[in-house]
């Protein structure tokens, strides 16, 4: 699979007043293959938005290499721009412009046929509100408008920074369906989001960033498997005695109020056998598989803001 986005060793430092410096991105790597829906996760201040801005030519990197569709950017930015649709954070629109006019002006500036405006408004479910002023839009509607603006030029790569911001559950679901239909149509999607469950549902690949560095990357299933502790939730009639027995057999046991968490064993039958031999019949035995949230929290020091963690 050819790479649509390649970032190697990206570094960006922001300089503040009184010679203060903040390293936003510190040797970050990212690889996004064609046709992927790629989740981009990290706590606030971890360098996600700076990375996206650098990729779009809005921020100058100090060092590192970035390529879009195999072409070095920002040098080839103008050449590849037509193939990239993007929203970075929640874009602000002029309140007294209608949604339709907002998109029409972008289409004009980008040389896109203005007939696309109605098409993308329909795609994001805003066609019937297209002639309303943007000031009357909810946060979710503005977010849809932003996504519509990114879709105008029928991009091959869609970069979306927190597209679900402000959306209600139904809106999030619609957005998920939209992403999926775009991916089915061959569009590569790079999705930055804090809604980890959403990323797990929609993305096939993921990159996790913390303090400006990549801490995990790969297919979602592989990243999760890499953090599988082989833990099991166990419910038995005499939990104290069961815990003693399992510990004696060399297993790690964490006693919780309602159940035990048993780790260090890959075969559930082993747990069942050890307890059954002593007359303790297991009522419930459930594997505890890691989800993206637990992996994210583990890799990013509990998901605290990197600015705070570094402070």
């Amino acid at each position: 699979m050819s790479a649509v986005i390649e970032i190697e060793g990206l570094r960006k430092t922001f300089h503040g007043p009184y010679r203060s410096r903040h390293v936003a991105v510190d040797g970050f790597d990212l690889l996004v293959g064609r046709g992927e829906i790629h989740g981009f996760l990290g706590p606030n201040g971890s360098g996600k938005t700076t990375t996206l801005r650098a990729l779009l030519g809005l921020v100058r990197a100090d060092s590192g290499r970035m390529r879009l569709f195999g072409e070095d950017v920002p040098r080839a930015q103008a050449r590849v721009a037509a193939r990239v649709g993007a929203i970075v954070e929640t874009p602000q629109f002029f309140g007294n412009f209608t949604g339709h006019r907002t998109l029409r002006l972008l289409a004009l500036a980008g040389g896109v046929p203005t007939r696309r405006v109605d098409e993308v408004l329909a795609q994001v479910g805003l066609l019937d509100r297209g002639e309303d002023d943007v000031r009357g839009y909810s946060l979710g509607m503005r977010q849809r408008l932003a996504v519509a603006s990114a879709l105008l030029k029928e991009p091959e790569l869609l970069i979306l920074d927190e597209p679900a911001n402000g959306l209600d559950p139904a809106g999030i679901r619609e957005m998920r369906d939209l992403m999926r239909s775009l991916a089915d149509a061959g569009v590569t999607v790079l999705l930055s989001s804090h809604i980890l469950g959403e990323i797990q549902l929609i993305c096939d690949h993921v990159t996790i960033v913390s303090a400006g560095r990549r801490v995990a990357a790969g297919p979602v299933a592989e990243v999760l498997a890499g953090h599988d502790q082989h833990e099991w939730l166990v419910r038995v009639p005499e939990p104290d005695r069961a815990a003693e027995l399992l510990r004696a057999a060399g297993l790690a046991v964490d006693e919780r109020p309602e159940h035990l968490v048993v780790g260090g064993v890959s075969d559930a039958g082993e747990v069942s056998r050890l307890l059954g031999e002593q007359g303790l019949w297991v009522r419930e035995l459930v594997p505890l598989r890691p989800d993206l949230e637990s992996v994210f929290l583990k890799l990013t020091d509990g998901g605290v803001r990197d600015e705070e963690a570094g402070a």
Binding site: L56, G57, L58, P74, Q77, A78, A81, V84, A86, V88, E89, P91, Q92, F93, F94, L106, A109, G110, S149, K153
Partner: peptide, 18 residues
């Protein structure tokens, strides 16, 4: 000024990165 402070220019530059 309004275009710079509201991000309108950024929107435009994503489209026309010149």
């Amino acid at each position: 000024g309004a275009d710079l402070s509201t991000g309108g220019v950024v929107n435009l530059l994503i489209w026309r990165p010149r």
